[in-house]
Design a protein around this nucleic acid. Structure first.
Lengths: 228, 228
DNA sequence: GCATCGGAAATTGTATACAAAGTTGTGCCC
DNA sequence: GGGCACAACTTTGTATACAATTTCCGATGC
């Protein structure tokens, strides 16, 4: 397929590779992930593919349907709300902690992240920009030195990317880099309270940019959808 | 071994069974979980066992050491702190939500849970009591109608059980049933603010009952420990 | 006695074979 | 032509065979 054969793949690297592809919208929600297909693409047996798909299903990025196969997840409106509820509980306080423990290295990483995101947007690589935008949030948890919370946020960020793929409303380019800039300012001033507040607003903006009315819901079953 | 052969086991049921055993301290931290051993015990092949162990490792209840095997996880002091940090972010607000949405069915379930926990304590079944005590917290998230957060809390609760196994200090019986009673009262009064506050205190009490000084830390490697 | 170096045994890692379930296509019947 | 049944094909589920690695144990040398 591509350069997938040049690397030694393991269940971890394959699932990370797939997660990034999902995050960047190269694998849109609902995509069938056939085991043979993936095995040939990566040059590995189905054993490893299955372990990778299992890992992704535990992160709710892939849905395993018994005897039917693996599909990129399609979060429901309800799940979308829940994901942002969880982020609202975890991220603002974590931003506060990050501000308190901020180091110059941390600031440099965040700066570099924003720079790359701008570059990606300028190059029209929207998927890559979205991925980098997510990494910004994960980097904050890392700076806050909270590995456990970082794991949860990392999963929620990837799920958010699926939600954005399904429910994104604004066609205007992601104006959120402004929010990240503002956060960076707060971090530079080691201002925990402001960082927490900015993160809270940022998440509210994000969910406000989605169309979570039940109308756009993908049909539970094709049969049901057509019988309406 | 026991009645394990009477049931049709799948990766999901096996990992749930193991998780409960870990939660109840029947499988203490550090226990080796051999694949053949488990396969024979449950009457299934290593394929299913591996899928179950993989699931548990994703929940941080089992540590997979490459070419060495699977072991019941031994959370570090640092990890212990992180788990309770995460719980402190998630559970108090979730308790508030639960209070707001509380139903009579929900109250009955919580009541029954406390009753069974008392019964288990009276019967000297400490492991079972600990498990039920965890279920109380998970039930709250369920009543709050937050499936995603419930999943995170469920993982954190199981990890807390490992932490208790390693760092529990008070020999006195778990006095925390008092805390659960107080929470139940707040729920009965649909008093979100009090429920949130009680949950916060409850978690602080819990972490205060642990000995998280670095001294008791199990050595990273036996060799290193002996060379000191 | 102690450390070190094989080599056998045991255990995990990966691929593959076969079974089971689902999907698709064809032809028959009405 | 539409509906249905059955068969061929495709895909996933599980077990097992074999390879790779570690562990255990005893022999060897100092």
């Amino acid at each position: 397929m591509n350069s997938l054969n040049t690397k030694v793949w393991s269940a971890e690297t394959v699932s990370a590779d797939l997660e990034r592809a999902i995050h960047e919208h190269r694998l849109p929600p609902g995509t069938k992930l056939g085991e043979d297909e993936l095995g040939e693409a990566y040059g590995i047996s189905r054993t490893i593919v299955r372990a990778a798909l299992l890992a992704l299903s535990h992160r709710h990025l892939v849905e395993l349907k018994r005897n039917r196969g693996a599909f990129v997840a399609q979060p429901s409106v309800r799940e979308a709300r829940e994901v942002f509820e969880a982020r609202a509980l975890l991220e603002p306080r974590t931003a506060w902690s990050a501000a308190e423990r901020m180091t110059d290295d941390g600031l440099a990483l965040l700066h570099e992240n924003i720079r790359q995101e701008h570059a990606a947007l300028d190059a029209g690589e929207n998927g890559r920009a979205l991925y980098l935008s997510g990494q910004f949030h994960i980097e904050i948890a890392r700076i806050a030195d909270q590995t456990t919370i970082e794991g949860f946020i990392s999963e929620l960020i990837s799920r958010s990317s699926l939600i954005i793929a399904l429910y994104w409303r604004r066609r205007a380019a992601m104006c959120e880099t402004q929010a990240h800039h503002a956060l960076l300012d707060a971090f530079e001033g080691r201002d925990g309270a402001t960082a927490e507040q900015l993160m809270k607003s940022h998440l509210l903006d994000l969910i406000a940019s989605l169309d979570l009315r039940n109308v756009t819901q993908p049909p539970a079953s094709l049969r049901e959808a057509l019988n309406r």
